[in-house]
C-alpha cells in the first residue's frame, strides 16, 4: 500500500529523517508516535509529496510518487494546523475543494454530524480553533479515498466531537481503509490504533501492535510502555 525505503531528509543542518523503512499494509489503523520534532509530520508530508526527500523512495499502490500528483486522489489528508484562507466562507471552501477533487455528497452527512450548519456562511477567519478543525475533518472525510492520513486529528475538539471522530474513524476502518494517525494523546491512540510505529530522531525504534509493545517493555500501561522505549533502547 505505502512502501517507504531508506528515506533521508535534512532541513538545513538538522537531520530529520535518518533512513526510514516502513511498509504499511492495506486495512487497519496505524499510529505514528514519537516525541516533538521526531519527524512524524515530515514522514506524512513526504508521503503527500509536500516535502521532497533527499534520498530514498516512496511508493503508494506500487507507483513511485516522485514527480507525480495523481496518486493523491487516493489519499485524504487532515493537516495538523487547520490553516485556511481567512476571507473564504466555509461553504465556498467546501465547494472549491469539491471542484478540485471531484463531486461528493458525503459532506452533507458530515456537516450534520459535526453540527456545522450555522457556520456555513461564516468566513473561515472568524471561526474558533475547534470549529476550524471540524471543517478540516469534513474536508478530509468527504472523499471516499482508500488511504486516510490524520495529523493530530484531536486538536481542539470538544468531548462530543471527539467521540464522533472516533466513530467516524472506526466506520472508515470497517470499510477496509488504511488510516495513518499521529497523535500525542495516548489514550486515543490506544483506543483506535491496531499497529503503532515509534519514531525517535528520524529512526524507527519500534513497529508492531500495542500488546507486543507491552510484552516487550514488560509494562502493563501503554503510556509507561512508550516512556520505556524512550529511556531504554529496544531497537
Amino acid at each position: 500500500m505505502v512502501e517507504i525505503t531508506d528515506l533521508y531528509k535534512k532541513f538545513g543542518k538538522n537531520d530529520v529523517l535518518n533512513g526510514i523503512n516502513l511498509s504499511i499494509k492495506e486495512g487497519g489503523i496505524f499510529a505514528v508516535l514519537g516525541p516533538n520534532g521526531s519527524g512524524k509530520t515530515t514522514i506524512i508530508k513526504s508521503i503527500l509529496g509536500m516535502v521532497i526527500p533527499d534520498s530514498g523512495s516512496i511508493k503508494v499502490f506500487d507507483t513511485n510518487i516522485k514527480n507525480d500528483s495523481n496518486y493523491r486522489h487516493k489519499i485524504d489528508y487532515l493537516p495538523q494546523i487547520a490553516n485556511f484562507p481567512s476571507n473564504l466562507k466555509v461553504n465556498e471552501l467546501i465547494k472549491m475543494i469539491k471542484d478540485l477533487r471531484g463531486n461528493t455528497i458525503a459532506d452533507q452527512n458530515l456537516i450534520e454530524t459535526f453540527k456545522l450548519k450555522p457556520f456555513l456562511n461564516k468566513k473561515l477567519g472568524t471561526l474558533s480553533g475547534g470549529t476550524k478543525q471540524k471543517v478540516n475533518i469534513v474536508l478530509t472525510f468527504m472523499f471516499n479515498s482508500p488511504i486516510i492520513i490524520l495529523d493530530e486529528p484531536t486538536t481542539g475538539l470538544d468531548p462530543i466531537s471527539l467521540i464522533r471522530l472516533k466513530e467516524l474513524i472506526k466506520n472508515e476502518k470497517a470499510k477496509g481503509k488504511t488510516i495513518l494517525i499521529t497523535s500525542h494523546i495516548m489514550s486515543f491512540v490506544e483506543e483506535v490504533a491496531d499497529n503503532i510505529v515509534f519514531i525517535l530522531e528520524g529512526k524507527i525504534y519500534f513497529k508492531g501492535s500495542i500488546s507486543e509493545l507491552k510484552t516487550l517493555t514488560k509494562q502493563q500501561n501503554f503510556e509507561h510502555a512508550i516512556a520505556n522505549i524512550l529511556t531504554e533502547n529496544h531497537a
Binding site: 500528483s69 490553516n83 484562507p85
Partner: peptide, 16 residues
C-alpha cells in the same frame, strides 16, 4: 498571504 491556500492545494491531486 496565500500560504495557507497553497498548503491546502498541495495536498490535493494537483501538479505543483
Amino acid at each position: 498571504n496565500s500560504k495557507e491556500f497553497t498548503e491546502l492545494l498541495l495536498a490535493q491531486p494537483l501538479k505543483r
